[in-house]
Amino acid sequence: MKKTILRSVALIAAGLLAVTGCSANAKSGGAADGDFPSKDVRLIVPWAAGGSGDLTARTIAPLLEKDLGVNVIVENKPGANGSVAYNWLAEQAPDGYNLAMMGVEVATLQFMDYDIKPENYAPIGQGSSGPGAIAVPVDSPFKTLDDLIEAAKAKPGEVTFSSPGIGSVWDSPAAGLQQLAGIKLTSVPFDGSAPSIAAAASGKVDFSIDAIGSQKIQVDGGHLRYLATLTEERDPNNPDVPTTKELGIDLQNASWVGIMAPKGTPEDTVKKLSDAMEKATADAGYQDVIKSSNLVPTFKNSAEMATFIQDEAKRYGPWIDYAKNNTK
C-alpha cells in the first residue's frame, strides 16, 4: 500500500520536474561590463505583497523585461519599514542585476534611528506619485482650512488628526503644517493609511492628512470632505478644492515610488535601466494600472531623482524631529 503511494508520488514529482525544468535556478553566467544585461535582473520589493507599491513593481517588471531582453524577477523582502530590503541592497554587488523598489523611506528612515543612508544607493528613476490632501469628516464644523487653523490656535493641542504612523510620509507634512501655520495639533498614529483614513471618516479624529487617492474612497462615499490639496496646482480631478498654497500655507507633499540600485553601479548601466524605466512608465497599460490605483504616473530620471531624494531628506528631517519632540 505504502509502496504504491510512494512510487506514484515519485513518478508524479519526477514528471513535474521534467516538465518545469530547473528554470528557477538560472543563477549562472557572469557579465562583462559593456553588455548589460546578460542575465536575469532581480527587483526587490521592500513591502509585503499586495500593496500599491508591490503592484507597481509587478506591473513595471514585464515592461522592463521587454526593453532589457532579460527576465526581471520580482521578490518581496518586507520587514522593519523596508529597511531589511534597503540594507540588503546596499550590500549587493553594484552591477545593476540587483535592484529594489523605493519610497520616501530611503530618505527618511535615517531620522528614525535606522542605518539607511540615501548616499548608499544609485537611484534609477521614479514611477508614480500620490499627492496629498487634507480632509475632514463631512459634518465637521471646519468649512475651510482657515477654520481648522483658527480652532487649533484657540485651543492648542485639542485638534487631532490621524496619520499612518509617526515619521511616515503623511505624518511628516502635518508637522510642516503646524510649523507654517504656527499651530499645535495632536497626532494620532495608526497602523497604515486605511485605518487612519477610516478613523477620520467616522469622526474619531478631526481631520486626515493623506494621499488624495487614498481619501477618495471616503470622499466618494460621503464620509469625508477635502479642505485643501497639498499640490502646486489644483488637482485636475478635484478642480473645486483649493491648494494649501492658495490659502497662504506653502506646503506640498506627495508619496512616491521609484527604483534604485546599490551605490557604485556603472553610469551606463544606470542610464540603460533609467531609459528602460522611462519607456515603461510611458506605456498605456502601466498608466492605466497606476491611475486606477488613484496614483499619478510620473517619471523622473536618475539624475533628477538623486537631487529629489536629497531635497526630500532636507524637508523631512526637521519635520520628523518636530513630530518626535511634540508627541503628546
Binding site: L6, V9, A10, A13, A14, L16, L17, T20, S23, A24, N25
Partner: peptide, 13 residues
C-alpha cells in the same frame, strides 16, 4: 529525493 522534488515543485515552481 521524493520530498525534495515535492518541495521544489511546490515552493520554487
Amino acid at each position: 529525493a521524493v520530498t525534495t522534488a515535492v518541495l521544489h515543485f511546490l515552493f520554487i515552481v
